[in-house]
Design a protein around this nucleic acid. Structure first.
Lengths: 330, 330
DNA sequence: CTGTTAGCGCCTTCAG
DNA sequence: CTGAAGGCGCTAACAG
């Protein structure tokens, strides 16, 4: 059915190696031979079999990335960083959102397509939970936005981030309301929120302080709005400092409260984590994370590993920084 | 370096086919042989070479999807539809965001990884612009959320959608402000906005009506806010009906105007297209599009094509429906 | 139940 | 400059 080099060669009246040479732009080919081959390729509608090619080369020229969800801009930024490095060495990138239990199960099998690659990036996911043991892939793996003892990783120092945030909260001298993330326990959990939480509480407890109240919600704008509702229903005694585990939640709360007529500075202060685009636009105080740079570093590490240049486990951490904006200025 | 079946076989003291049989869970294997093979696999850290396997089978068990961006929820919904169909036949899905000129160029080569698959889905992109001629892939291709004479496709009837919207606008009997999408001319253009635009103008011109004003912006919340600003700077003479090419823009405008104290019903009416989550939440009148269903249909078509069951070109169109909500009720 | 072997399509020596 | 031949790792006949 599908034509192969042999058929192209026959039609062109040349040997298969000549066809191969044309296909791969090798130098020493007579103009005449090239013409004939091109014509035969066109006539047959030939396209090369990539599996055969990869088998022959012993590599695919591609790396895969596993990540939890797609519909958020965080990964766009991360990916642009990754791409920019990968392109330098002409590596391609294939993308695998791990969306449900089904996908997860699938990706535990050594034969599933993410592993048809020269290397693997795992973003935000906990490899322990994903693989419960040895991963079904024996080529280089680099973790990004997550970490684990046994793998190379590039991540934020979320512990410091938490400490920074708590420090800033303390300086504002208001009772603290902590809005935490409710993670569905199980495979998708990432260490991010846990680390931030530990950082926050380490500072708070050092000062003998406990949040006046703690809420749990999902890491979305909507999740934030729900907390906003709850806050309106059982109003607090005076102004509070709302510390949310991520910008989306913080902005959801912020919008909900201001929509209801409450005033930043007057009725509450609020901050988040991540410094995403919405945060900048909303004037939200937050902890900035250099996302793009993280992507670049991770890709760089993988490239090194692919070149056998990585002889010991790497754990890179990127430093967060505090961005004070309107929502915590009185 | 990397161990293969032969080495596993040698260590286990069996033939390669026995190893293969264990790997693929074939029935007639003695418990003893299975044990030995498992042990050898474990000891060597063997993982199968997927390229060899695919070469042997003549297929990869995966399909690829090319799409324009990732950070928006539209594609999450679309994908969930696609996945649900693909899982039924145990096909895997690999994901390729076409983000910049570089990627585009890359994906025009027959050797780039999206084409290491049994079939291809192209979402929202214009194949004409992508490939300028014959695509570098000779297996089944299905277009989704876009269409083209030469390919199978599943898309919305955006022409009708435009007509519906214009009809509704006319019924509101207010001068019309049209907010169109400024597309970067070139490869990424999709036919969606053009179709909607044509639908809108066909109805308007039939009634001898011309928009009082037309704006151009990008298809984002931010793009909408910018138009909101412009509207505030040069206020209109009385209330208008704002017809935006997509929900994001409409919501951006809506938020900006209401933030500035303008009132829906009083000062303006507004509607969008798509019926995304934000639209529902914002009470925005819009044209609903069954996104998930579109994904399912497209995947279904591809599966049929893979099974050689598609003997003529298919062009499926899904009907839009008008969702009247608060933003156009006076 | 198990081992031997051919061949999937490609690219790259190796001779000419 | 070009053709013939081997082999990448795997699986499915085919014999035992």
């Amino acid at each position: 059915m599908k034509p192969n080099v042999k058929q192209v060669a026959r039609l062109a009246g040349v040997g298969t190696s000549t066809v191969s040479r044309v296909l791969n732009n090798h130098p020493n080919i007579s103009h005449d031979a090239r013409e004939k081959v091109m014509k035969a390729i066109e006539a047959l509608g030939y396209t090369p079999n990539l599996d055969a090619r990869s088998l022959r080369y012993g590599q695919t020229g591609a790396v895969s990335i596993l990540l939890p969800v797609t519909g958020i801009p965080f990964y766009d930024t991360l990916l642009s960083g990754i791409y920019s490095e990968l392109e330098k060495v002409d590596l391609d990138l294939a993308f695998f959102p791990v969306v449900g239990e089904n996908r997860l199960r699938r990706y535990r099998e050594a034969t599933s397509i993410p592993y048809r690659a020269d290397g693997l990036l795992i973003a935000s996911l906990n490899p322990e939970r994903m693989y419960q043991g040895r991963p079904p892939f024996s080529k280089p793996i680099v973790l990004v936005d997550t970490h684990h003892r046994d793998y190379h990783s590039v991540s934020f120092d979320n512990l410091s981030a938490g400490q920074m945030a708590a420090q800033h909260a303390l300086e504002c001298r208001l009772p603290i309301v902590f809005v935490d993330i409710q993670e569905t326990p199980g495979e998708f959990e990432s260490p991010v929120f846990g680390d931030r939480r530990r950082g926050i509480f380490s500072v708070l407890s050092r000062h003998g302080i406990v949040p006046r109240q703690t809420f749990y919600t999902t890491a979305t704008l909507e999740g934030g709005r729900k907390i906003g509702q709850q806050l309106l229903q059982t109003p607090l005694d005076g102004p509070h400092f709302i510390l949310a585990q991520c910008d989306d939640v913080a902005i959801g709360i912020l919008r909900h409260l201001t929509d209801a007529g409450q005033q930043v500075g007057e009725d509450f202060l609020i901050m988040g984590f991540d410094d995403n685009q919405d945060a900048q636009q909303a004037g939200l105080t937050t902890i900035h994370q250099p996302v793009r740079e993280m992507g670049e570093k991770a890709a760089g590490l993988l490239i090194q590993a692919l070149a056998q240049e990585l002889h010991q486990l790497q754990h890179q951490q990127l430093a967060p920084s505090l961005q004070v904006r309107q929502t915590t200025r009185t």
